[in-house]
């Protein structure tokens, strides 16, 4: 099954690398959108049906945690699984993100297998929403 994915990262290069790595991992992507920060991601969500959000934590304008806080306020957006892909290793921030409802956390640098395993675990869970 193919999933529509939104990649949120302020680095254009990293968005490209994540997209390539997810494809290489064998996880099937349907449509794929990219945003440079949380606000751009929220704007995309207004017009595009997204099954999964992969987001960085530290970004200008609106960071990953701020974006998740906005998502959980909305009845529809809060059902979209969010996975953090970040170099940030600070436990309190990761714990805060999990408390807000993120479904997974992948640390950069990453192997394709780590991405595939995490994404399949989340998307193939019986009631991932």
């Amino acid at each position: 099954m193919a999933y529509n994915v939104l990649i949120v990262d302020d680095s254009q290069t990293m968005r490209k690398v994540i997209r390539k790595t997810v494809s290489l991992s064998g996880f099937e992507i349907g449509d794929c959108w990219e945003a440079g920060n949380g606000q751009e991601a929220l704007d995309i969500l207004r017009t595009c049906w997204v099954d999964l959000i992969l987001t960085d934590l530290n970004m200008p304008v609106m960071n990953g945690l701020e974006m998740v806080k906005e998502l959980v306020k909305d009845e529809i957006y809060r059902k979209i699984p969010v996975v953090l892909i970040t170099t940030e290793g600070s436990e309190p921030r990761i714990e805060e993100a999990y408390a807000l409802g993120i479904k997974g956390y992948i640390q950069k640098p990453f192997y394709p297998e780590a991405i595939r395993d995490t994404l399949l675990r989340i998307m193939e869970a019986p009631h991932h929403d």
């Binding site: 680095s11 254009q12 290069t13 990293m14 690398v17 170099t87 940030e88 290793g89 640390q107 950069k108 640098p109």
Partner: peptide, 22 residues
């Protein structure tokens, strides 16, 4: 694009080093 990637690599090496130091 290459400069952006250098920034990301620097960030990842810094982050990975800090995790190892931790």
């Amino acid at each position: 694009e290459v400069k952006d990637a250098v920034g990301e690599l620097t960030n990842m090496i810094s982050g990975d080093s800090r995790r190892r130091l931790e």
